[in-house]
């Protein structure tokens, strides 16, 4: 499903069907998933579309830019590090492309969105919530539903720290896709309450392609590579 295509693109599965048909001098994009059906009219133009995973914070409506992943607690000893693999929900973006310029045509997901609050109600942030298992190797996943984050955790504090959640600012997120959807990220724990989290602009494996992201397509003015500081704890 992922990659560049022309308007002959179709996709059919039990969960979703997508097609673009000529209609009255234009083209008609139709997506059906579950009870939801989206129809949009698009112009002829360059007739190029790109389908790839995007930041998982757009559905059912954009209310935040933060993604929170809860996982089985991992105890990290002082001044040491560990790389773990956790999963994240995948949202799929369909973009129209013309001369290197992208426009978001549609975003959908085959996973069920759930939101949460990281921090107290008066100063925390709303997050897209995802519960994940932790593994030491890359897990086998359905790339249309879940992606994998290679999370390098460093404990720079003087104490043992139990980590069971990580929060990403998806406005500076880097996604790659191939056989799997992946993110490479770094979490630097400064204390039990504070950690810096950043996503790195590199693929998890060879042959993976960088995703066109919604933020980039909208040309939102966001400086690159800003780490998000988790200030309200890294554990439950």
């Amino acid at each position: 499903m992922f990659g560049e295509s022309d308007y002959s693109f179709t996709y059919d599965s039990e969960e979703v069907s997508i097609r673009i048909d000529p209609s009255d001098g234009f083209y008609q994009y139709v997506r059906k998933s579950g009870t939801e059906a989206i129809t949009k009219v698009i112009s002829g133009g360059s007739r190029k579309i790109v389908v790839n995973p995007v930041e998982p914070v757009n559905l059912p409506r954009e209310v935040t830019r933060f993604l929170e992943i809860h996982f089985t607690p991992v105890a990290i000893e002082p001044d040491s590090g560990e790389t773990v693999y956790v999963t994240f929900p995948v949202e799929i973006g369909i973009f129209l492309e013309s001369k290197g310029d992208f426009d978001v045509l549609d975003i959908f997901t085959l996973s069920r969105p759930k939101y949460s609050l990281y921090g107290p109600p008066e100063e925390g942030v709303i997050t897209r919530y995802h519960k994940s298992a932790v593994s030491g190797t890359i897990p086998k996943l359905d790339r249309l539903k879940e992606g994998v984050i290679a999370l390098s955790i460093t404990n720079a504090s003087r104490n043992w720290v139990e980590v069971s959640r990580v929060v990403f600012d998806c406005s500076s997120f880097f996604l790659y896709y191939g056989d799997i959807v992946s993110v490479v990220a770094r979490m630097n724990i400064l204390s039990r309450d504070i950690a810096d989290v950043r996503s790195e602009d590199r693929p998890l494996g060879e042959g993976m392609v960088p995703s066109i992201l919604v933020n980039k397509a909208r040309k939102t003015l966001i400086p690159d590579k800003i780490p998000f500081t988790m200030e309200f704890g890294v554990g439950d």
């Binding site: 059912p60 209310v63 759930k114 939101y115 949460s116 609050l117 919530y129």
Partner: peptide, 10 residues
Amino acid sequence: EDHPFVLRNP
């Protein structure tokens, strides 16, 4: 539980 915007926490 099924509603996306009913927060998991709180």
